[in-house]
Amino acid sequence: MNPDDLEKHLRSQPMRQVPPQWRTDILSAARQASPSEHAPRTTQHVPRSPSLFSTLLWPHPTAWAGLAAIWLLILGFNLATGPSAPLVAKRASPTAPQVLMAFQEQERLLSELLGPRETPVAERPKPAQPRPRSELRHRLLMA
């Protein structure tokens, strides 16, 4: 038997075809697993130009929106009642000369109550008498 003939015959044996229904299942599984399939899902949640501000605010958007609304209300209320407040403050606040005069008056009264200022003069410390260093030695010698 010629081995080449057998090899040729073996090569000519047709292999079974892949079952056609596998194609749909396998490609479907592959599409689900592909990263591009997941990409649109993530971009729905992530802003296209993520900044630090949006990143910080993103976890609780409703809460942040509510807080912003409250601040807007406060700002609106403040603006609505705003013009009278500075006037009241202007009326209530004394002018600078008045404040200075009041301050000088208070200082005068205080000085009257306390009397004239006396600056205590500290006594100078007496200069210590230098002891003879050899006093003890001298006594010992004399003894």
């Binding site: 292999m15 079974r16 892949v18 079952p19 596998w22 299942d25 396998i26 490609l27 599984a29 592959a30 599409r31 697993a33 592909s34 990263p35």
Partner: peptide, 24 residues
């Protein structure tokens, strides 16, 4: 795969695993 594993269900699983791996 069929010739190597001699098992049709394994062949299908391996074929799917291969294409899923490529897709990932």
């Amino acid at each position: 795969l069929l010739n190597f594993t001699r098992h049709e269900a394994d062949t299908r699983d391996l074929l799917q695993e291969l294409f899923v791996k490529l897709a990932k």
